[in-house]
């Protein structure tokens, strides 16, 4: 069990590409932290630097009390689960799980005991003598997990471990992984591009974009007070509506096309601005703002109405039993659910 501290970590590739801009944060002992962002945002590079598979250009990395910048991956006492599982195809499940222990010179009986224990935890006992090629995707995923937990590491690292599974299995494994981590109490860093995974699994989320940390916070914080338009639109499905507007000197908020929004303007700002409203923070059939519905999407529990508000693309999410059709409907905005962002850099005001 350990705390992980990154101080001024920075990664530049030899070809000059800056994969991760200088960043610092601390992952508490036993915490489950998710690194989320679109592909190429540097989340995997960050994870691989923690694993020791990638050199750190600058900064200090601590796992526990130890600075591990120059420590070999094998000696960092970490375990990693890969996207394609990276199981050794020529070894049985038991051998796959025990290989790391064997390399550490642990006795055969002890390895067997540990592998048995992990297999039991993961319902793999019947498969120990099989090869990876004889297993289903979900079982392979479990073996990869098993390989990580037999080692009783200080730190779990997950690199998009669920993205090769089908949707149903993914939901199930999400819960299993989280439950397992809780039970073992091991610190975990989890990389994904799937915002649902991030929201449901994380104690804390780190949102990355273009090699830069956009925001660090609990899922609730990230969702309710996104630090930038990027976070606002990346986290949450359907994404937040972001409208171009202007705050007049007398604190009226007017969309670029001239429609005035009945919202309280931010105190410190005037001039051009971005207004963010989540699709579920609106009530249909009330208020005065006209919403022109063009398409209705049935999502089962919800219906998603797409259209325009004052000429800008806009969507509203309503409950499944709400009658809705195309045409112009008045909407009201839930008070206090409006986010304001700077038009220059997209950051929250």
């Amino acid at each position: 069990m350990a705390q992980v501290a990154l101080e001024g970590i920075h990664k530049v590739y030899p070809n000059g590409f800056e994969a991760v801009q200088t960043c610092s944060f601390v992952i508490q002992d036993g915490e489950f932290v998710v690194l989320v962002g679109p592909s190429g945002c540097g989340k995997s590079t960050l994870l691989r630097m923690i694993a020791g598979l990638e050199d750190i250009t600058e900064g200090t990395l601590r796992i526990g009390d130890r600075v591990v910048n120059d420590v070999d991956p094998a000696d960092r006492n970490i375990a990693m689960v890969f996207q394609n599982y990276a199981l050794y195809p020529h070894m049985t499940v038991a051998k796959n799980m025990g290989y790391g222990l064997k390399n550490r010179g642990i006795s055969k009986t002890e390895i067997d005991a540990k592998v048995q224990e992990a297999a039991k935890m993961l319902n793999l006992t019947d498969y120990l003598d099989r090869r990876p090629s004889q297993l289903s995707g979900g079982q392979r995923q479990r073996v990869a997990m098993g390989r990580a937990i037999v080692r009783q590491p200080d730190l779990f690292l997950f690199d998009e471990p669920l993205s090769n599974l089908d949707a149903k299995l993914r939901n199930q494994m999400r819960i299993e992984v989280r439950a397992l981590q809780r039970r073992l109490g091991t610190t975990a860093v989890y990389v994904t591009h799937d915002q649902v995974e991030a929201m449901t699994m994380a104690d804390r989320i780190i949102v990355l974009n273009g090699g830069r940390i956009e925001q660090i916070g609990t899922p609730k914080e990230i969702y309710s007070t996104p630090a930038s338009t990027f976070v606002a639109s990346f986290m949450g499905a359907p994404p937040m509506n972001v409208l171009n507007a202007t705050v007049s000197s007398d604190k009226h908020v007017t969309l670029d096309e001239g429609l005035e929004l009945p919202v309280a303007a931010p105190a410190a700002s005037s001039g051009p601005i971005l207004v963010g409203i989540r699709p579920e923070d609106l009530t249909l059939g009330e208020g005065t703002t006209p919403f022109d519905v063009q398409i209705v999407e049935e999502l089962g529990a919800q219906r998603l109405l797409h259209g325009t508000l004052g000429g800008q693309a806009f969507s509203v999410s309503v409950n499944k039993d709400h009658e809705a059709g195309t045409g112009t409907i008045p909407v009201s905005i839930t008070p206090g659910a409006v986010h304001f962002f700077s038009r220059e850099d997209g950051f929250r005001i």
Binding site: G52, P73, A74, I78, A86, Y99
Partner: peptide, 12 residues
Amino acid sequence: ELVEAARIDGAG
């Protein structure tokens, strides 16, 4: 990933 997994598993 195979070489990476092996490195983490302590294989030189």
